[in-house]
Design a protein around this nucleic acid. Structure first.
Length: 504
RNA sequence: GAUCUCGUAGCUCAGUUGGUUAGAGCAUUUGACUUUUAAUCAAAGGGUCAUGGGUUCGAAUCCCAUCGAGAUCACCA
């Protein structure tokens, strides 16, 4: 235990000796937030003579019998003025001299009641009439100080500590809270948008006997009573389509998916995807739908379709640029791969210095060329359409072009932020596609799909023509909040266990 | 999984070519100041230099291994 922790435990005892409970049980009648005061207070037009607010004590400047301090609530900080003879009207000055000056620490939760005034320097301040300790902190909070020039001192910046102790990060770094508030708002706008169209928010299994709906490696677990292997879902696509079979016109789910793959600033083992399926629509309808929804998100968060992300300005104003995949490859490499067979593609990929291996089929080769040369250059939101059939086993064959499917992805800031198809509803074609995937699996591709007989049976009962889309919520949140790492938009990103705590 | 970088006080960081007892600011404690402040002044306490081994008369510093983190790459959303 550090010195500071020992001192705080001692303070705790002294408070109890003075008859002050450091962890009182009663509700505290908060009626005002710091931001309310900052926004609404005006000495002439809107005096605030009786406010009660609560929060953490974040700084204290003692000057004899008068002190200035700051308390931080969920809306921000507010300066308070504490005068000895006002909080201690009688002879006993213990409350000020001992409790306030010595036994309170930065980080403690306190409640104050008082009147708002302007100091000589013009700062809005609460003149405290009574002060209540609400919860004592015994672990020192790292204090970020900002000097007169706006420079931060002692910022709490170590990424490991920030993610492991997110609660501390949230207390001392206000912009962190902001990113999460925006993330939540983004999801809310999307949800409202879809609900307003009449679509139903649903929940589907996370524990699945057969994983499907995406190309990825799953987490495996075991159910004891059933004595069977279950997989944590990698996607919810096949379940949502079963619901379309069942007669819903539109269903969506914000789903936690789990993929047992590498971690990076773009990948967390568990992540959130939103998938939406709408009956009697196709992927071209979905393009318009998505564009409109995301434009609305941008406006809700930034008041504009245009905002800064890293060193780029991104504009979500409709309409977005649309490329077929082959057009995009031609645009950024100068090579037209239209009509090439597998060997020709392999040769073209080598010439373009695209990393490839022998397990790759025609679809993966095209995808690699696109991923290496086109995707990194797509900063503004862009639709990429017409994917090869080999890499899209759940998408309907293109109505006009042999070998392609009706599919689009949206690429923005060099990352995919949506993936959509006109869904394959021909049960015989779907069975063949699964079988091709099985063949790829035998060839050594560890991410090929497995055959889901129950899903095929549902298609055999008949699924209406359907458009479906999947949206990477974390990726989209990174762009919308201008975050460089996925860990900045996930409260508790996955990390290795903390050695010290595990040992205790 | 590969490569590179990093790990020093509660927090942010110095620490020279390997050389006395490892430093600073903030935070903490004590004292001063009894005041409408924007890091008030003074003093003090605080360290398994990530962990373990090695080289050396001597290691925070050089070498090896391990643990943890970050960046880039691979896989992927």
């Amino acid at each position: 235990m550090s010195d500071q922790e020992i001192v705080r435990r001692e303070s705790l005892g002294k408070l109890r000796e003075l008859g002050i409970e450091p962890y009182p049980a009663a509700s505290y009648p908060v009626d005002t937030y710091a931001a309310d005061i900052r926004i609404n207070y005006s000495p002439e037009n809107h005096p605030m003579d009786d406010v009660t607010l609560a929060g953490r004590l974040m700084s204290v400047r003692v000057m004899g019998k008068a002190s200035f301090a700051e308390i931080q609530d969920s809306s921000g900080r507010m300066q308070i003025y504490v005068n000895r003879d006002e909080i201690c009207p009688g002879e006993d000055k213990t409350m000020y001299n001992d409790v306030f000056k010595k036994l309170l620490d930065i980080g403690d939760f306190i409640g104050v009641k008082g009147r708002v005034f302007l100091t000589q320097t013009g700062e809005v301040t609460v003149h405290v009439v009574s002060l209540t300790l609400l919860s004592k902190t015994i672990h020192p909070l790292p204090i970020v100080k900002v000097d007169a020039d706006g420079n931060a001192h002692d910022a709490f910046t170590d990424p490991e500590l920030r993610y492991r102790q997110r609660y501390v990060d949230l207390v001392v770094n206000p912009e962190v809270r902001q990113a999460f508030v925006q993330r939540s708002k983004m999801i809310q706008v999307m949800r409202d948008f879809m609900v307003s169209k009449g679509y139903l928010e649903v929940e589907t299994p996370i524990l699945q006997p057969i994983y499907g709906g995406a190309l990825a490696k799953p987490f495996k677990t075991h159910h004891n009573t059933l004595d069977m292997t279950l997989y944590l879902r990698i996607a919810n696509e096949l379940y949502l389509k079963r619901l379309i079979v069942g007669g819903f016109d539109g269903v969506f789910e914000f789903a936690k998916n789990f993929r047992n793959e590498g971690m990076s600033r773009f990948h967390n083992p568990e992540f959130t995807a939103m998938e939406l399926y709408v009956a009697y629509k196709d992927c071209f309808w979905m393009m318009d739908f998505y564009e409109e929804m995301i434009e609305e998100v941008a406006i809700a968060l930034h008041g504009s379709t245009k905002f800064q992300v890293g060193d780029k300005e991104i504009d979500f104003k409709r309409p977005w640029k649309r490329f077929t995949m082959l057009e995009a490859i031609k645009e950024f490499t100068g090579v037209d791969i239209t009509g090439m067979d597998e060997d020709q593609l392999r040769k073209a990929a080598r010439e373009l210095h695209v990393p490839i291996d022998e397990t790759m089929g025609k679809g993966k080769l095209i995808d690699e060329i696109f991923g290496t040369h086109a995707e990194p250059k797509l900063i503004q939101p862009t639709f990429i359409t017409d994917y090869p059939v080999e890499m899209s086993p759940l998408a309907k064959k293109h109505r006009d072009h042999e070998g392609l499917v009706e599919r689009f992805e949206v690429v923005c800031n060099a990352k995919e932020i949506a993936n959509a198809f006109t869904e394959l509803n021909d049960p015989i074609d779907q069975r063949q596609r699964f079988e091709e995937q099985l063949a790829l699996g035998k060839r050594g591709d560890t991410e090929s799909m497995v055959l889901d007989e129950d899903f095929l049976r549902s298609l055999e009962y008949g699924m209406p023509p359907t458009a479906g889309i999947g949206v990477g919520i974390d990726r989209l949140a990174m762009i919308m909040t201008n975050s460089a790492s996925i860990q900045d938009v996930i409260f508790f990103p996955q990390m290795r266990p903390e050695k010290k705590i595990a040992a205790e």
